[in-house]
């Protein structure tokens, strides 16, 4: 009798578990399906638009024909510019937090401010970049102003990934180095950094992915609606891929005619993200270490 009851409740328990697990599995695969739908939609619609001309020519006929060459170059300039700023500053900042800062209070404070900076919406960076770099410093709408704004946006990502990378270096390396008579900086630069290097680079790659797709911060600091020539200096305006996609999908001269261009531009952006993610994953696997973004 008792056995029967136990058996029945066991069956009910197992059935409840089967239902629950099935639901969770189904919902998880649904999430994966959402991503696959978005990706395959953009890829299938985008591929017909991609051609050598599309990637290497200036936009023509009110941006309904031609290519997106200036936008590609513009995005490259902005990525390079922002990384030139964010990478050294971010890595140095992380070294300070992890290797040098003596009081835990200073450490906590910097980490808290970095978290806060990471939480600020990108459009607020845009407002700030416009007020400080474009107006106060008088850079105007320029690669310089846009790169600095994007660089500040990427800073928390670089700092966090570098911090994680430095943390994963075992203390025995530091102790051994110091014991051999090396100074703090010698230990950091010759022992700790080389070990942490692969993970730091992974962080750099991930922040490149982030920066190349941002639109809001460049709206008022650099992005040009239509500019069929290449920049000649850091005070020039440029077109950029994400802003170009926004323009031709919402406010172009002929929305229907520029749809194909929009699919093509979206595909180029997706491909950048794919490459960045694959590269970061490959690096992680290759060096057998994990870097977390969050």
């Amino acid at each position: 009798m008792t056995e029967e009851i136990l058996d029945a409740s066991g069956r009910a328990k197992r059935r409840a578990q089967r239902i629950a697990f099935f639901t969770f599995t189904f919902m998880s695969f649904f999430v994966i399906a959402i991503l696959l739908v978005i990706l395959s939609f953009i890829i299938i619609r985008g591929i017909p638009a991609i051609s050598w001309e599309f990637l290497t020519e200036m936009p023509k006929d009110g941006m309904t024909k031609g290519g997106i060459f200036p936008a590609i170059i513009g995005t490259l300039c902005l990525v390079a510019g922002s990384m030139l700023f964010a990478f050294p500053v971010g890595v140095m900042s992380a070294i300070y937090i992890n290797e040098y800062a003596k009081s835990s209070w200073v450490k906590r404070f910097i980490q808290m401010m970095t978290n806060n900076l990471a939480g600020i919406p990108s459009i607020v960076f845009g407002l700030f970049g416009m007020a400080l770099f474009v107006n106060r410093f008088g850079f105007g709408d320029s690669i310089l102003a846009g790169s600095l704004t994007l660089g500040l946006l990427a800073l928390p990502v670089v700092i966090r990934t570098t911090e994680e990378a430095l943390k994963s270096v075992d203390d025995s390396f530091r102790i051994a180095s110091i014991a051999l008579g090396a100074s703090k900086w010698q230990t950091t630069s010759l022992v700790v950094l080389p070990i942490a290097f692969p993970n730091i680079i992974t962080g750099l790659i991930l922040s490149i992915g982030r920066v190349s797709g941002e639109t809001a911060p460049i709206l008022f600091t650099v992005a040009a609606y239509f500019l069929p020539k290449l920049p000649s200096g850091i005070f020039d305006q440029v077109m950029a891929l994400p802003y170009h996609l926004y323009v031709i999908s919402t406010s172009g001269t002929d929305l229907k005619a520029s749809r194909e261009m929009a699919y093509g531009t979206a595909l180029v952006l997706i491909v950048i993200v794919l490459i960045v993610n694959l590269l970061a994953n490959w690096l992680r696997k290759y060096f057998g270490n994990k870097v977390k973004l969050h």
Binding site: V31, L35, S212, G213, A262, A266, I270, V273, N277, L293
Partner: peptide
């Protein structure tokens, strides 16, 4: 895990376009 990271990496303007 990487698929979800990819979802996080897609630019917001591409989501908007989709």
């Amino acid at each position: 895990k990487p698929v979800i990271e990819l979802l996080a990496g897609i630019p917001s303007v591409v989501y908007g376009f989709f």
